[in-house]
Amino acid sequence: MEIWDLLHQAAPIMLRGTGYTLLFALSSMVGGLILGFILAVARIVPWKLVHWPAAVYVSLMRGTPLLVQIFVVYYGLPSVGIEFSPLMAGVLTLSLNASAYLSESLRGAILGVGKGQWSASYSLGLTYIQTLRHIVVPQAIRIAVPSMSNTLISLIKDTSLVSVITVTELMLSTKEIIAVTFRPLPLYIAAAMVYWFLSICFEALQHRLERRLGRAHQ
């Protein structure tokens, strides 16, 4: 079978897998941002009972392999009565993992906002929460865009790991085609090109967003 004929036949299945890859990446990014913001705030508040659990969580998620986390959530938790579908387990694990990295990006960005901004807000009568919400966070998001975009690009590649729990994303779709055609090299290269293309697209969106936020800040 010619390579182009092979890729033509594989395209519909790989495109479906690519859809699941994007679903996993974007869903996990949203979940990771929500939890990551909570963790970032918990890491900067002066209350140790809030700060230390958040710090331990971030250290744990960043210090253990994502593959092990997937196994714990999908294969380990059912032993204590907590069970998820493969799709839900994949999104949940990726969200939990991404939240640790995003929290550090957001925390660094929040701390990067000048102390004068806080002082000026307090002098206007704003509370800590109001200052964080209306003054600091909008500026921090602009600072954190590059690192958050890098996390999203990493998520796109990390979705390949959820194939181990039978989620038919791009990598598992590719493996299924290989099992029938016995042509691994061109199909793995094609999958790599799809991941690369998705990364390039999101990098372009990142640069466009940075320019837009930069103009808005001027």
Score class of each variant (00 low, 15 high):
residue 107 R to D: 04
residue 212 R to W: 12
residue 211 R to Y: 13
residue 128 Y to K: 15
residue 85 S to K: 08
residue 191 A to W: 02
residue 12 P to I: 10
residue 128 Y to R: 15
residue 10 A to K: 05
residue 144 A to G: 11
residue 54 A to L: 05
residue 29 M to V: 06
residue 80 V to W: 12
residue 110 I to G: 00
residue 117 Q to T: 10
residue 70 I to D: 04
residue 100 A to K: 03
residue 53 P to Q: 11
residue 61 M to V: 07
residue 74 Y to I: 05
residue 217 H to L: 09
residue 108 G to Q: 08
residue 176 E to C: 04
residue 48 K to W: 14
residue 59 S to K: 11
residue 55 A to D: 12
residue 167 V to E: 05
residue 190 A to P: 02
residue 201 C to W: 12
residue 141 I to P: 00
residue 160 S to V: 03
residue 42 A to L: 14
residue 35 L to Q: 05
residue 15 L to V: 13
residue 190 A to V: 06
residue 50 V to M: 15
residue 146 P to Y: 00
residue 136 V to A: 06
residue 17 G to V: 03
residue 108 G to Y: 07
residue 168 T to F: 13
residue 61 M to Q: 03
residue 8 H to V: 12
residue 50 V to C: 12
residue 83 E to R: 15
residue 14 M to L: 15
residue 117 Q to L: 10
residue 134 H to V: 09
residue 72 V to G: 05
residue 1 M to E: 14
residue 58 V to I: 15
residue 120 A to P: 08
residue 154 S to Y: 07
residue 94 L to A: 06
residue 57 Y to A: 04
residue 43 R to Y: 10
residue 138 P to K: 01
residue 89 A to P: 03
residue 155 L to Q: 01
residue 47 W to T: 12
residue 208 R to K: 15
residue 191 A to V: 07
residue 57 Y to D: 03
residue 82 I to M: 14
residue 79 S to F: 14
residue 14 M to P: 05
residue 118 W to I: 10
residue 12 P to Q: 12
residue 89 A to K: 03
residue 185 L to R: 04
residue 75 Y to G: 02
residue 157 K to Q: 11
residue 182 F to T: 05
residue 120 A to K: 09
residue 191 A to T: 13
residue 218 Q to C: 05
residue 152 L to G: 00
residue 50 V to W: 11
residue 40 A to E: 07
residue 57 Y to E: 04
residue 30 V to H: 06
residue 128 Y to F: 13
residue 133 R to F: 06
residue 186 P to H: 04
